[in-house]
């Protein structure tokens, strides 16, 4: 018995070392850079200068919030329909939803430019049917569309996986007891699917709030998001300290959002994991 526990401990050692070096140490680095200046002296100026970015943070949260709500509204009925169809149909739909996730998201987002451009596919169509040209590219709408497009599968999959486990007899029981369609949805289906909804919300909100590529391409760089600000500090302005401060605040913001969300469900651990 003693031998096993010793081997077990040793077996774990490489990973423990790895996670200290490459998970914890980088986090400490973010805090260190955020609290120092270029020469490594302690300073709070990085954090105080973040007040200039209030609008950027606000915009990021607002766009990510809208994208998450739209994803939820689109995914919920889809997941419901999927979970109630035949097994073969479920498999095919599942495959169709996962397939885009395997393709490079840069190319897919870039393709939207061809569709949304002023001389693009949609506008050609609009002109042909007499609506006239509509400015779509480089608008907040295009940025949110890009977020919804890229992260929709992350909302569908967890909701679908809880919907599959939904107890059909409970729904029938509610119907037998005189519940109409809406009441069944409100009192039986929705509460049971909540863990999937919560994990879907986090899986869409986190990448949306921190994106930089989508806003650059579909927003034409006119609507700076937190991700853009961070990317700029690291890749063109080379102010790592300010970039670290921005990252730190973004990280804390997401942790706070998640804590608030977890308040809604205490049993969110169960069945909420995608894999």
């Amino acid at each position: 018995m003693k031998k096993t526990s010793l081997t077990a401990k040793l077996v774990n050692a490489p990973y423990i070392v790895w996670s200290i070096l490459f998970i914890l140490a980088p986090m400490i680095m973010v805090v260190y850079y955020a609290l120092t200046d270029r020469d490594g002296n302690f300073t709070l100026s990085n954090l105080t200068s973040l007040s200039e970015y209030t609008e950027t943070f606000g915009r990021s949260i607002w766009y990510a919030f809208l994208a998450t709500v739209i994803c939820l509204l689109l995914s919920y009925p889809l997941a419901y329909i999927m979970a109630r169809s035949k097994a073969s149909r479920q498999r095919t739909l599942m495959m169709l939803i996962m397939l885009p996730m395997w393709m490079n998201f840069l190319i897919r987002t870039y393709s939207w430019i061809t569709i949304l451009n002023n001389t693009g596919i949609l506008n050609t169509l609009f002109e042909a049917i007499g609506i006239g040209r509509v400015q779509m590219i480089n608008t907040p709408g295009a940025v949110i569309l890009g977020m919804v497009y890229n992260f929709l599968p992350y909302m569908v999959l967890p909701i679908y996986s809880v919907m599959c486990k939904l107890d059909q007899s409970l729904i029938e029981a509610a119907q037998d007891l005189g519940c109409n369609g809406r009441a069944v949805l409100k009192t039986v289906i929705f509460p049971q699917s909540l863990p999937g909804v919560i994990s879907g919300i986090t899986m869409v909100f986190v990448p949306s709030v921190s994106t930089f590529y989508i806003s650059q391409k579909l927003g034409g760089g006119k609507f700076m998001l937190v991700g853009d600000a961070i990317e700029m500090q690291f890749q063109s302005a080379y102010n790592y300290n300010l970039g670290a401060a921005l990252s730190l605040v973004l990280m804390l913001m997401i942790v706070i959002c998640m804590l608030i969300m977890n308040r809604f469900t205490d049993n969110s651990e169960e069945g909420a994991m995608l894999f």
Partner: peptide, 10 residues
């Protein structure tokens, strides 16, 4: 849980 950009930057 961390946004990818934060992981990358860190």
């Amino acid at each position: 849980v961390n946004p990818e950009i934060v992981t990358g930057v860190s």
